[in-house]
């Protein structure tokens, strides 16, 4: 994490410290991992603090993750590489940024259920793909969302970031982006000729 992200985090944390959202209960058992955690082991969602999602939440989360990052010829969908578990871990964490997201996500889920009922008289889990998209289209771009959808659009923007953040940090997500690295090299040669040619530097 570079300093740009860290300063952003610091300011964001300061901004949400006095958390005023009331409707969503806090997880009381969650403990922070402390300032000197074991860096050598692999952590899984639920290892450090209890998770939050009910079965219904998980089902909804899965549909939404796959609407945002579906499987295609190149890579799997977000839900198939553990992004639902990751989002559950995230919103269950005992830190200010995550606590704010907890309220945003759980309230967002409730709103999606209400829209499924209102628009299609169905549970969200029973919506057809085009019905899922029908709701998403109203909330996928906050700057152009209609006033009554602005809160939901803020939720969707954050949920999309949680989904991309969860997906592109997996081996499958890195492969999708054709990331190359994290492997020792005997020397560093700089950009190869095809790269320089494409950018117009040779």
């Amino acid at each position: 994490m570079d300093r740009r992200s860290t300063i952003k985090w610091m300011l964001a944390a300061a901004a949400v410290m006095p958390l005023a959202r009331g409707a969503v209960p806090r997880s009381t058992q969650a403990q922070p991992y402390g300032t000197d955690p074991n860096l050598q082991i692999t952590y899984h969602p639920g290892d450090l603090w209890p998770l939050t999602f009910s079965a219904a939440h998980r089902q909804l989360a899965r549909i939404l993750c796959d609407a945002i990052i579906p499987a295609d010829a190149t890579s799997p969908g977000a839900a198939d590489v553990g992004v639902v578990d990751f989002i559950d871990e995230w919103i269950s964490a005992p830190y200010p940024v995550q606590r704010a997201d907890r309220a945003l996500v759980l309230n967002g889920f409730a709103w999606l259920e209400s829209q499924a009922t209102r628009r299609f008289s169905k549970a969200y889990a029973d919506l057809a793909p085009n019905q899922v998209r029908n709701i998403c289209d109203d909330i996928c771009y906050l700057p152009q969302a209609r006033p009554e959808f602005r809160t939901a659009a803020a939720f969707f923007a954050r949920y999309r970031d949680l989904t991309t953040g969860g997906f592109y940090t997996t081996p499958q997500g890195r492969a999708d982006l054709r990331y190359v690295g994290n492997t020792p090299l005997p020397r560093f040669d700089g950009p190869p000729p095809d790269v320089l040619r494409q950018v117009g530097l040779i």
Partner: peptide, 10 residues
Amino acid sequence: PLRGSGTADK
């Protein structure tokens, strides 16, 4: 945890 994101602890 948290995909390595920064927290108050780290």
